[in-house]
Nucleic acid binder design. Structure first.
Lengths: 223, 223
DNA sequence: GTCTATATGGGGATAGAC
DNA sequence: GTCTATCCCCATATAGAC
């Protein structure tokens, strides 16, 4: 429990989290992880069964608390709203906030897990998907009805597409993009979690409330 | 030039495009690629120099035309608008459309490249970033001023953040997410490119025009 | 241009001493 | 729980015959 010298298992989790986030799962060798953790190579297969199981453990450690916090915040927003639907902004804040506040709460390693989580959404591979499915099924069951109530006039297919966009914006921001430095320069401060959350909530709320797209664009812009 | 039997180089590009999109770069072996292309293993190092160079060739083949089309569409929108700024929706359509119309234009392999491009935005690794930088610098130079003119009252830092969100939504949609099937079921038809473009433009235009987030939320939602 | 064969290194996983 | 040593497979890349 001494923070100066965590035990082997924790050191492995920390190192794996960082390296998986930086290089991706397939490109990270167990040798690199054990070297970074200053642990023997065989320790991975003793404490975890395999590289795959190590990845699962990395996620299990963080994702549970995040999703619990999400549902807590949603529940308290619903309690405040009484019988009516909570405001869209509060629903979004409940979903987004816990993920982005990791960095502040965990100091060093919060950043890595944010990046890892962001990347994972667009990562292929069935093992990865298998990790996330049960975790997200629970939050989906809570947030989907809330969003439907907050946006009662939005058709289901449209809501589905917009949730898709929303997750994309969030995941990309969590991943801490690289390419976009070209567009935006360094005017974004990624360590300003509260500012990022406010901006994201404002952007997404407006997008989710957007008027339905017309079936044909008003002015002909044929490609 | 016979489409029934493309030459070895093209077969390799096609197979690499598909497999990189499905499994990621590091997780795809040259053996898998040559097997899928029904080509000898050594052909990769004859036609391209290395695995890395093969990836670059896969991108060079598609990204150039897409970005050229983007700038053409932007230019024609600007021509229609005369001295005024083109409508935001037309700018977005010019940026988004060409990427999503790949699928229709290329039949089979368009889908793979869309997925690959979407994933690449959040992928780490300097080689990958090095591929995209020069390509995107050009489109950024065209679109950034156009967006600034279309959103004259938006502060620069805010615009930067929102472009970030925009790219995330687009990349995630291109990647053809997996996890989100839980949220949305199968109510999204990914083959409906025009529908997706319309929805994305509508969502993003509203998000980009969103009111500035207040520095403190009106109602206290402390975490 | 295309093949076989191989060089060379790194990967995950494990056995068994301590 | 931790270490050394090693098994065994697969990776990229190349050499050289055809």
């Amino acid at each position: 429990m001494n923070q100066a010298e965590p035990d082997t298992k924790t050191r492995l989790l920390d190192a794996a989290e960082t390296l998986f986030a930086e290089r991706g799962f397939a490109a990270t060798s167990l040798r690199a992880i054990t070297a970074a953790a200053q642990v023997n190579l065989a320790a991975v297969n003793y404490h975890f069964r395999s590289k795959q199981a190590l990845l699962e453990a990395v996620f299990a450690r963080r994702l549970g608390p995040i999703n619990r916090r999400r549902l807590e915040l949603l529940a308290s927003a619903q309690a405040r709203a009484g019988r009516r639907a909570p405001p869209l902004e509060e629903i979004l804040e409940a979903f987004i906030g816990p993920a982005f506040r990791l960095r502040a709460e965990l100091a060093g390693s919060g950043t890595s897990f944010q990046r890892l989580m962001g990347r994972l959404f667009s990562e292929p591979g069935e093992h990865v998907q298998a990790i996330l499915k049960p975790q997200f099924a629970e939050v989906a069951a809570g947030f989907l009805p809330a969003l439907e109530r907050a946006l009662p006039r939005l058709p289901g297919a449209e809501l589905a597409a917009r949730i898709h966009f929303m997750v994309g914006a969030m995941a990309h921001t969590l991943a801490g993009t690289h390419v976009m430095q070209l567009f935006v320069g360094d005017r974004c401060d990624p360590s300003d979690a509260e500012g990022t959350i406010r901006r994201l909530v404002s952007f997404l709320a407006a997008g989710l409330r957007a008027p339905l797209p017309s079936r044909r664009r008003p002015r002909s812009t044929r490609s």
